[in-house]
Amino acid sequence: MLLQGATLVGVGDVTQALTSEIIHLNRAIAIAMNRGLGEDTSSKLIRLQSVAEGWLKERGFRYLSIPPDSDRRKGKFISRLYKLFPHKTAATCSGLGWVGKNGLVINRDYGSKLSWATVLTNAPLVADLPTEKSQCGNCNLCVIHCPSGAVTGREWSINEPYREIVKYEKCSTMKKSRRLLEDRPNCGLCINICPYSRNGKTVKT
């Protein structure tokens, strides 16, 4: 299948990660766009998703699209199902990255600079090999530099998907207090400090 314009596309076997409502949709198409390109990545991802939907529908397959900004979509009935499946699972199961110490998907070439969209389907697509373990290794830059001390330094593996890697309350508390002082509360340090996000350039600590 062609999804022109995507930075990366992968297919994962996600059988293990499904709840009963969506148990029949055991393949995840993970679509990623590089945010660094400065375009409106979100709407571009949604366009790509609808291309995939059309392709699947034409062939009589079922699908469920989970949009990039799934947590901000509420008004629709279908949005109640979005929380059943995280983009991270699609990304790791399709081998496009691991969950880093910063709690975000890290891809070898693009680090955490990707935005993700997922299309779950029952089409028997050939699945890529999953990424099973964190590749962060000894790097602890995000742990050291996180201003709120939220990054614990624990490492992710596919067998422990729900382990607490980042203490999100700490991060969001800091965001809230920052919002009072400036317009851009997102600090993004854990993304920008990551050597993978810097295209492999190493940083000295």
């Binding site: 409502e21 969506i22 029949h24 949709l25 079922r62 629709k76 009935f77 279908i78 109640r80 199902l81």
Partner: peptide, 14 residues
Amino acid sequence: YFVPEILMCADALY
């Protein structure tokens, strides 16, 4: 049809 389809149908109806 399963739950996801039903929900999408409901969205289409609305």
